[in-house]
């Protein structure tokens, strides 16, 4: 059975089990490995992608649920908010092991796209579903504030 959706701007049809989580469809069927497997239960956020602009956990999202919709993975990030986030991540040297960071960048980008001036409480709300065992949290917070500044300046 095939599922058609738009992946990183490209119309895509996958001939795969419709119950397969989007995470594995993207990683193993399409071959985009930037989205990570961390828990398989939407508890850690390592697998975060954008579905119609919303940050969602792809490890529990059946492939069938994205039919006809827009999916963006870390490989397809293009927006000004995303660029601001990634630049701030580098400037503030956020990653340590780096494994969760695709998901962190995806969640932070979705936050900034909705809310260009997030408060600390907004950041807690949007980012507390993304676990980082290296606890890069202080830098993630600082980087989101920095990204918001540069994003606003460029807008």
């Amino acid at each position: 059975m095939s599922t058609s959706f738009v992946l990183n701007g490209k119309p895509t049809t996958l001939d795969a089990d419709p119950n397969m989580p989007l995470l594995w469809a993207v990683r193993e069927v399409v071959g985009l490995p930037g989205t990570k497997f961390g828990c398989g239960m939407a508890l850690c956020g390592a697998c975060t992608v954008h579905l119609d602009g919303q940050a969602v956990r792809s490890c529990v999202m059946p492939l069938s649920a994205v039919a006809g919709r827009q999916v963006i993975t870390i490989e397809g990030l293009q927006s000004a908010a995303a660029k601001a986030v990634q630049a701030a991540w580098i400037k503030l040297q956020v990653p340590q092991c780096g494994y969760c960071q695709s998901g962190q960048v995806m969640s932070a980008t979705a936050l900034l796209e909705k809310n260009p001036s997030p408060t600390d409480a907004d950041i807690d709300g949007a980012m507390s579903g993304n676990i980082c065992r290296c606890a890069t949290y202080p830098r993630i917070r600082a980087a989101i504030h920095a990204a918001a500044q540069s994003f606003k300046a460029s807008a």
Binding site: P33, G34, T35, K36, F37, T73, I74, E75, L77, Q86, W89, I90, Q93, V94, P95, G98, Y99, Q101, S102, V105
Partner: peptide
């Protein structure tokens, strides 16, 4: 000094065993 591994860990291209 900036970390040698940060850029690849921000754009999803860093290589882990999973990948």
């Amino acid at each position: 000094a900036s970390r040698v591994d940060v850029a690849a860990k921000v754009d999803g291209t860093a290589q882990f065993t999973l990948d």
